[in-house]
Design a protein around this nucleic acid. Structure first.
Length: 416
RNA sequence: GCGGGUUUCGUCAAGCGGUUAAGACCUCGGAUGGUGGUUCCGAUAUGCAUGGGUUCGAAUCCCAUAACCCGCCCCA
């Protein structure tokens, strides 16, 4: 036998026995997002590499070491590592800033990041997410979070923690960064290697380092004082305050986390994550925030925006595994012709029905029926002659011979 | 990129230097039988991730490689 070819590291087949959970995730998304006025958008799976370099940010890990990039016809292309940049590209390119605000878009689909796989992390994974354009008011932030919570609740997920923070605007954040760098400067040589790079690239990321020596440094009172300081400018502070006010009004329990920064460069002001304790170390199911300057940065008119994404594999691992769904009926008959005809008749009426394509023995067919269906539809010589079918309920063993036209009624009442 | 762990049939697994490599489930076939899920019988790894080594003898010990899993970083 030839060697078999395996799925690639960090990728998975989604098998028939788990597909119903995926359908549920997708159906609930469509239903609930639609209630909030969102429309689905589908953008390509690869884009110009430059889109992500400019959109996601060239200091981020995602862009620096996690992208699947390839050359074709002298173009540099990249499999999308996330979908905000793509949606923004489409928003700009299709002139959606001319539409009446807010423009509300949602998406679902595969994303690609070249990382070491572990629990809750794959190289190809799926996200469902939303983006809202054109509203700078904190009502938009609150509605976006509300929508996330609503969606999660619809899936039966209630035991989740919403964490929020505000990163301020470029102006007040720069000031904050400057202060952090200043107070940490004397300690620079004592920081771990990672923190030394973060010091240059993204000082906000420094603060939740897990290395003991770094933690000890950050514990120092003069440093804590800077970290804890309220750096938001007046406008940002008001925005954040109003955002929280709306969350409270909506009864959304949240926790403020000053260390919540998020790894994508485009965020400003509101950022949030929704976490579950049942996920192992990759515990965020949802992450998002406001990105008011991204549209402008990518060449569109300045447009405030906010969005979030959820990891569908992570959602899936939190959901109850559903029972395999059975057929309504399995036709047991030694006449393939008659079985075929009956199957089509019932399928056209909307029932899920199969019969034995291999025309095995009666017992085998019944055995199969018990395995895959709720009802056995027995079509023997007698039944064919009298235009009836013996309908056997396979869980109660009740069996009744009925006219063909009454099958649905019989299955229906025993089914409900 | 850096750590730790695991790897025996489709699946779960026994095995601890000498076995014909248990067992269970699934699948398939047969018996009985116009009626399954709840009977009985049978089939299914010359093979223990791969390549070397030690040994009279290796799934069992050693080395290397790979794959997978888990964690760090980061993220959904």
């Amino acid at each position: 036998m030839a060697n078999i070819i395996h799925v690639q590291k960090g990728t998975k087949d989604i098998l028939p026995q788990e597909i119903s959970q995926w359908h549920r995730l997708e159906q609930n998304a469509l239903e609930i997002f639609t209630k909030y006025g969102y429309k689905e958008i589908r953008t390509p799976i690869f884009e110009a590499t430059e889109l992500f370099a400019r959109g996601v940010g060239d200091t981020t890990d995602i862009v620096n070491k996690e992208m699947y990039t390839f050359e074709k016809s002298e173009r540099s292309l990249t499999l999308r590592p996330e979908n905000t940049a793509g949606v923004v590209r489409s928003f700009i390119e299709n002139g959606m800033s001319r539409l009446s605000a807010p423009v509300k878009l949602w998406y679902k689909g595969p994303m690609f990041r070249y990382e070491r796989p572990q629990a809750g992390r794959q190289r190809q994974f799926h996200q469902v997410g939303i983006e809202m354009f054109g509203i700078k008011e904190p009502t938009a932030d609150a509605e976006a979070v509300m929508l996330a919570v609503d969606y999660l609740n619809s899936l039966g997920l209630n035991d989740l923690e919403v964490e929020i923070n505000s990163l301020g605007c470029p102006k007040c954040r720069e000031e904050y960064k400057r202060k952090i760098k200043e107070v940490l400067k004397p300690e620079f040589d004592n920081l771990c290697e990672d923190c030394q790079t973060r010091y240059e690239k993204n000082p906000l990321r420094l603060l939740d380092c897990k290395v003991e020596t770094c933690k000890a440094i950050f514990e120092k009172p003069e440093i804590q004082k800077v970290i804890k300081s309220d750096f938001l400018c007046e406008e940002c502070a008001q925005h954040y305050k109003d955002f929280k006010k709306y969350l409270e009004k909506l009864n959304i329990k949240y926790v403020e986390n000053k260390l919540l920064v998020r790894g994508l460069d485009y965020y400003n002001r509101t950022v949030f994550e929704i976490k579950s304790n049942n996920l192992g170390s990759q515990n965020a199911v949802c992450g998002g925030g406001r990105y008011d300057s991204l549209v402008g940065q990518l060449g569109g008119e300045d447009t405030p925006a906010i969005g979030w994404a959820m990891g569908m594999e992570r959602l899936n691992s939190l959901l109850e595994k559903p029972e395999a769904e059975k057929l309504d009926g399995y036709i047991v008959s030694n006449s393939s012709e008659d079985a075929f005809e009956l199957a089509q008749e019932l399928r056209n009426k909307g029932l899920k029905v199969e019969f034995d394509l291999a025309n095995k023995k009666f017992t085998k067919q019944l055995e199969k029926a018990a395995k895959v269906a709720k009802f056995a539809l027995i079509l023997g010589e007698d039944e064919i002659r009298t235009n009836t079918v013996s309908v056997k309920n396979l869980s109660t063993s009740e069996q009744i011979k009925v006219p063909r036209c009454d099958i649905i009624k019989r299955i229906g009442e025993k089914n409900g």
